[in-house]
Write a protein that binds this DNA or RNA. Sequence first.
DNA 1: ACTGGCACTCGCGGACCGGGAGTGCCAAAC
DNA 2: GTTTGGCACTCCCGGTCCGCGAGTGCCAGT
Lengths: 338, 338
Amino acid sequence: MDDRKLEVLRAIVEDYVSTQEPVGSKAVAQRHTLGVSAATVRNDMAYLEEAGYIQQPHTSAGRIPTAKGYRLFVDRLGKIKPLSAAERRAVHRFLSEAIDLDDVVTRTVRLLAQLTHQVAVVQYPSLNRSSVRHLELVSLTPTRLMLVMITDTGRVEQRYVELPAELSEDDVLELRRLANEQLQGKPLADAPRAIADLVDLVRPELHATASALARVLLETVVARTEERVVVAGAANLTRAGNFFAGSMRPILEALEEEVVLMQLLGRADSNALLTVRIGDENHLDDFRETTVVTAGYGPGSVVGHMGVLGPTRMDYPGTIAAVRAVARYVSEILEQNR
Amino acid sequence: MDDRKLEVLRAIVEDYVSTQEPVGSKAVAQRHTLGVSAATVRNDMAYLEEAGYIQQPHTSAGRIPTAKGYRLFVDRLGKIKPLSAAERRAVHRFLSEAIDLDDVVTRTVRLLAQLTHQVAVVQYPSLNRSSVRHLELVSLTPTRLMLVMITDTGRVEQRYVELPAELSEDDVLELRRLANEQLQGKPLADAPRAIADLVDLVRPELHATASALARVLLETVVARTEERVVVAGAANLTRAGNFFAGSMRPILEALEEEVVLMQLLGRADSNALLTVRIGDENHLDDFRETTVVTAGYGPGSVVGHMGVLGPTRMDYPGTIAAVRAVARYVSEILEQNR
DNA sequence: ACTGGCACTCGCGGACCGGGAGTGCCAAAC
DNA sequence: GTTTGGCACTCCCGGTCCGCGAGTGCCAGT
């Protein structure tokens, strides 16, 4: 593959992204200083089309990149353009004003949406990789407790516990003490065993109650691997030419399905710093025209993913830079709470 | 205003809502058994138009209701049609499976969206009207605490507290004990005074720390009146004919602005069981074509609002019934946790 | 007061058409 | 052999035109 052919592809991608219209040979020849004539560009275009990097919407129209074309662009041509110093400062300031973990996540997702003008998705720090900092039991009614679990990533989980029998305040305190002794400091991955032991530690009269509690605890740390995800910037879907009305519906629906969102974020290879999935690389029919850019974040190791989602025809260098920068800053913030 | 004229208006509203097309005199005369001819209906229509209840999109087209027309329909003509027994059972079952307050809210908002095929909005139980059940302090780093507040409505609030000096574990325990003694059982409205007293109760060495804590506590109970709101069913905006593409954008944007959402929900007259705001009654330019149906909910007294939002051209009887039923069930559920 | 008849209005969809952008190919030039 | 200018061809896009049909307002008759 010729060097100049690559330049032609880059020109087509860049122009198409900015104008949203098929780009013709003449435009390429004069807007980008390739030093060749339109006719030459035409020959290269014919080659690129043959090779599957670009295509014509219809005869006698300009060319637009295919998913394969974008892929090549991202892999070999896109020099990511870092954020400006001012932008970086703004990101930093905005994130460091967060008042709790919820707020960190909320601010992050808004920031991403605003920087990239796309739909942003942020996953809460995964429970699996954190450990228990504190358990709190509060009685709501004589036969109903609320269990609150706080993890060292600052996440708070709450659940109701239905009790088989009435429970005195003293009993609540005892259960709380025991549960904390058993679980404090334990990584969630190791928690199930400790929870199982819990039942044996209590007085026989409390057995039934303790096992109800244990069941809920178990659900909290294990079954509820259904991770929480937040979304922002849905309005960006309506940006001129981002998506035609018809294809918006399924995307809006997907944004309310945690399963789909997790799939989009989670399929990311955890090792990679940053993943770009273009069009059908998402393996989801509704996202055939959609690109997802994701990055892992976390203090040291990856505890969650964040990303943005937009039309395949997006500003890759800018988007990639933004996602990477935000992921980095969020990781820093989390690091400070270790 | 003639009785028959009202019937004609009802016919126009009902037909327009179901077909989404301007309705003509002939259709009204034959679809609804008024016992008069099309010509008579035409005369009535002329009157209704004169009076501002209906209008023609253009000459020689059928009529569509105006906001004023819908208002009259809602006030005097709409017999709300209650949910079927099966629906009621389903609602009840779905809501009673909730595992915590978050889950109640999440399920509620989804339920509303699904029942009404509209965008649903649910406000978390307001902090102002609940009281403190428990405070928990967890040290994250030597100079950083996490404050977790649990209210008797089951809501959990968390905040970071930056400390002026390092704090021992014992000190954390003492602060926690004092804070709980001061605040437990207090309605949030009375909390500020109790918080102020807190500083005077601690040992002089802890003064600075206690006041940092007090400041955050105060923010938590007061300043953070910015209430939390959740949304679901955004995809319903794309339902055929619900909104034309152009007007969707500002609505999607508004759905991410808590301030606007609170305005939509909160302007509801708290005393009214159910509020319907049609078109410009919302006093928001972007919602001139939008109707918001809201209801208060809560155990006994109103602690929050919920509602749905859709085109003025909506199924009022069905929507109103659904919102009312869901609000009622949620109130029941909350009642059980008293 | 209601009804049938009738002339009139006007939006909508389809057919038609010219301009223009873009292409592929070819023969000549570097 | 690569590049280039020329040229014929394709086909989308936007505008115009037109006939149909739904719906109306009015009027005269019951």
